[in-house]
Structure formats: C-alpha cells, structure tokens
Simulated scan of single mutants.
Amino acid sequence: MIYHGIRMKLRDDVTPEQVDEALECLKAQGRDIPAVKAFVFGTEYGGDYDWSAVFALEDLDGYGAYLAHPAHTRSERVGFPLMARFESFDICDTPDPGLGARIAELQRRNYAGSPRLASLVAGLDAHAGSSAVPHGGG
C-alpha cells in the first residue's frame, strides 16, 4: 500500500467559497477514484499548513490511475491557484529502494502530459516533496 499525502497552505486572499470548492474536490478524489482504497483529509494542526490529506493507493498502477483520474486533475486545477505552498509525500509499508524513483517518474509524466497543470504548479510560491519534480518553475 502506498499512502500519498498532501499538505496545503492557502494564499491570504482565498475566499470561503473557494475553500469550500477545493475541499469538495478533495472529497471527490477519495469518493470517486476507484484506485483510492481509503482517504482522510481535514484541517492540519500543529504545523504551518492549513489542510492536509492522505490517499491510500494499492500500488504504482493505482497511483498512476489516481493521478490521471478526472477527479484528481480537477482538484489540481481548482486547488493549485489557491495555494501559497504545497507539499506532497509518500509512505509505503513495503520496503522498496526503487519506489521513490518510480513515483517521481509517475509525477513527471503527470506534469509532462498537462502543460496547464505544469504552469499552475510553477506558479506556486513553494512546492516540495514527491510531486516536486523539475517542471520549469516554482
């Protein structure tokens, strides 16, 4: 199982309506993407991020299906313009020294396949973690 986590710090000018829409997108990711086996999201406490989420994905095939699913791409299109900072990370309960590189390749292909997404990510003030592959900015 791969646990894909995200952390988001919103820009100061984000409206409550925009937050509601972005959170509905996160719910849809967990609810509508068949590759997601379980998920949790909510307010982050004890850190410097506003919202966090974790999606449980069975394997790399599921991870790739998650990235490509329309609910995920919609969430990125809606959410990235609202964020000042974004961080992603992955946790796996099976030791595999090559897993990080394969996840990075999935993320790289995700950005390469969508110039619009790559542009949104490049516009973030800060972007770190497993999804922060070279993409021409940010």
Rank of each mutant, 00 (worst) to 15 (best):
E17Y: 05
D20F: 09
D20M: 07
E21G: 07
E21A: 12
E21R: 15
E21S: 08
A22F: 06
A22R: 12
A22T: 01
E24I: 03
C25W: 08
L26F: 14
Q29P: 03
Q29L: 07
G30S: 06
G30P: 10
R31E: 14
R31V: 09
R31L: 01
D32Y: 04
D32F: 01
D32Q: 03
P34Y: 01
P34F: 00
P34E: 08
P34A: 03
P34I: 02
A35P: 03
A35I: 05
A35F: 02
A35D: 01
A35V: 00
K37L: 13
K37T: 14
K37M: 12
A38F: 05
A38T: 06
F41C: 05
G42R: 01
T43H: 14
T43W: 13
T43A: 14
E44W: 00
E44G: 11
Y45N: 11
G46R: 10
G47K: 09
G47E: 12
D48S: 15
D48G: 10
D48N: 11
D48C: 09
W51T: 14
W51Q: 10
W51R: 13
S52A: 15
A53G: 09
V54T: 11
F55A: 12
F55L: 09
F55G: 04
A56R: 00
L57E: 01
E58M: 03
E58F: 04
E58G: 14
D59W: 06
L60W: 08
L60F: 02
D61I: 00
D61A: 09
D61P: 00
G62R: 00
G62F: 08
Y63S: 03
Y63E: 13
G64F: 07
A65D: 14
Y66W: 03
Y66E: 02
A68V: 04
A68R: 15
P70F: 08
A71E: 05
A71L: 08
A71I: 07
H72C: 07
H72A: 06
H72N: 00
H72G: 04
S75A: 15
R77I: 02
R77K: 12
V78L: 02
G79P: 02
F80W: 14
F80S: 04
F80M: 10
P81M: 07
P81N: 08
M83R: 00
M83V: 03
M83P: 07
R85V: 00
R85K: 02
R85D: 15
F86M: 02
S88F: 05
S88A: 12
S88M: 07
F89E: 04
F89H: 10
F89N: 10
F89M: 14
D90V: 13
I91C: 06
I91G: 04
I91S: 03
C92L: 01
C92Y: 01
T94L: 06
T94D: 09
P95T: 13
D96K: 05
P97C: 01
P97V: 13
G98T: 10
G98A: 10
G98N: 11
L99T: 03
G100K: 05
G100D: 10
G100A: 11
G100H: 03
A101H: 05
A101L: 07
R102K: 13
I103W: 02
I103L: 13
A104H: 12
A104E: 11
E105A: 15
L106V: 07
L106D: 13
Q107E: 15
Q107D: 14
R108W: 09
N110D: 15
N110K: 09
Y111N: 08
A112E: 15
A112N: 06
G113S: 00
S114A: 12
S114K: 06
P115L: 01
R116S: 12
R116G: 15
